[in-house]
Nucleic acid binder design. Structure first.
Lengths: 235, 235
DNA sequence: TAGTGGTCTAGACCACGGT
DNA sequence: CCGTGGTCTAGACCACTAG
C-alpha cells in the first residue's frame, strides 16, 4: 500500500495531535520547519496541513502559524460538547448500564454489516441530566473489534468519542441519522421522569469510523420540552 | 478589493454552473485548458477546482475530468431532494399560501437582525405530501431584500433553494436548527390529518445566505410516523 | 497512445504578526 | 526586522481513462 508523501506527514501530525504531543492551542512546526525535517517542498507540507485544516484539527493564522484546535467530538446532530454548551452549566451524565458485553439486539437503528455480528457486542446506556432533570436517554451498541480493554474503561472527560480518539486513534468518519417524534413508552417515561405518551424526540444514529468494520449504533430519546436540540452548520 | 487569481476562476466557473452554462453531469474545461485560457499554471487552476470540489459543485475523476454534480440544495437536516429521495416516489408539494408580503410575525424560530425587520417580509406555506398523505407542513419567512420579482415567481422544479441559486445567484452559507417533539395543535393536526396531541417533530431553521442581510426562517412540522426524517453526513 | 487528474520539486513575491 | 502563512510560476513524473 503506497502512501503519498503528504499523507505520511499528515498522519504523523494527526496522531501527534490525537495523542497529545501537540496540545490544544499550541502550534505545529512551521511550514518551513516541516520542509527541513521531512525533506519536502512547501507545496507538500501545505498539502498535509490543508488536510488537517479541512478536518478541523488545526486553524491557520497568517503570520503566526498552525494552531491545534479543540476538536468537534462527532458529526451529526448532537454532541456531548454541543449538549453541554446548548444548555449551559450543570450538565451531568449518569451511567445506567456501564459498557458490557451483550448479544446483538434484534433491532438496531440501521442495517448492520455481516462481519460485525460475528464479533461480540458492547452495550452501554446513560442518562444526561441538567441539574436534577433527566433530559436524554442514550443507548449505544458497537462491535468489540479492535477495542482491547474497552469494557471497564473510564471515558475521558465523560466523552465516548474523545476516548475513541485518544486511546484507540479512531475517528468518526460519517454519520447517518433518523428522527422521529414518538410517544414515550413506560420505561423511558420513567427514566426521563415524564408522562407516558408525552412526545419524545428519538434520534437514531449510525456512526462509521476510521476503523473498517467498526460502527456505532445509538438511540437518543430526548425530552425537548425544556431543552430543544440545536446545532449550527457552516458551509 | 483585490481578488486572487484562483478566486476569479473559481467565481467564473461557479456562476457558469449556477446559471446552467455547465450542465449537471457535463465536464468543466480540463486543467490544461484552464491554464491556456486564463494564462495560469496548473497549481492555480487546481486551486480553483479544489474550492469547487470542497463546496460540492464538482466531482473529479482521475483520467477523465471534473464533472458537475447535482448539488445539495441546502444545509441542515432536511432538503427537498432529501425528502423526495427518502420517501421514494410519489412526492407532491401543494402551496397552502403562495409567497406574499406580510408583516413580520411576532415570534420566529431565531433572533432576527434589526435591518431585516425594516424590509418587507415574504411568507409562504406549503404541505409536502406522499401520495395522498400530508407529511410535512412548512412555513417560511424571509426579508424581500434583493429579491425583485420573487412574489409571483414559480419555483424551479418546486425548489425554493434552486430558485434562489439560479435566479438570484444566492447560495445558502449556513444553517442553524432546533428540534422539538411537540403535541400537534388543532390547526396543524387538521392540515396533516392526524389526531390533535399526536407527537409532531418540529424543525426550526434559520438559513444565512451569501447575500448579506438575507436570512430564511422556517418551521417544519413533520409527521414522522410513516416517514422519519433522515440524513447522512460525511466527514 | 493521447489526454486527464494526482503528486511533487524548486524556486519567487507578498501580506501579516510580533519584536 | 524576521519568520510566518498565502499565492503563484514553470516545470516534472506518474496513474488512470478511453479510443
Amino acid at each position: 500500500m503506497k502512501q503519498t508523501r503528504y499523507r505520511q506527514i499528515y498522519n504523523e501530525l494527526k496522531s501527534g495531535i490525537q495523542q497529545g504531543r501537540y496540545m490544544v492551542d499550541s502550534y505545529l512546526p512551521s511550514e518551513n520547519d516541516l520542509c527541513a525535517t521531512w525533506q519536502i517542498t512547501r507545496t507538500t507540507a501545505r498539502r498535509a496541513l490543508d488536510e488537517l485544516q479541512k478536518e478541523g484539527f488545526i486553524e491557520r493564522q497568517h503570520g503566526k502559524g498552525s494552531r491545534v484546535k479543540e476538536r468537534r467530538q462527532s458529526l451529526g446532530l448532537l454532541t456531548v460538547k454541543g449538549f453541554s454548551e446548548a444548555v449551559g452549566q450543570n450538565v451531568n451524565t449518569i451511567f445506567f448500564k456501564n459498557p458490557h458485553i451483550v448479544s446483538w439486539p434484534g433491532i438496531l437503528p440501521f442495517a448492520t454489516e455481516e462481519a460485525e455480528l460475528q464479533q461480540p457486542c458492547i452495550h452501554f446506556e446513560r442518562v444526561r441530566m441538567v441539574g436534577d432533570m433527566p433530559v436524554i436517554l442514550e443507548q449505544d451498541w458497537l462491535s468489540a473489534t479492535n477495542l482491547p480493554g474497552f469494557v471497564g474503561l473510564e471515558f475521558e472527560e465523560g466523552s465516548f468519542f474523545k476516548t475513541l480518539s485518544r486511546k484507540y486513534l479512531i475517528e468518526i468518519t460519517s454519520s447517518e441519522q433518523e428522527l422521529r417524534a414518538l410517544p414515550a413508552d413506560t420505561r423511558s417515561a420513567k427514566l426521563l421522569n415524564i408522562r407516558p405518551g408525552a412526545p419524545l424526540l428519538r434520534i437514531s444514529l449510525r456512526f462509521t469510523t476510521s476503523k473498517p468494520g467498526l460502527n456505532i449504533y445509538s438511540y437518543l430519546y430526548c425530552n425537548t420540552e425544556l431543552y430543544p436540540i440545536g446545532n449550527t452548520y457552516t458551509h
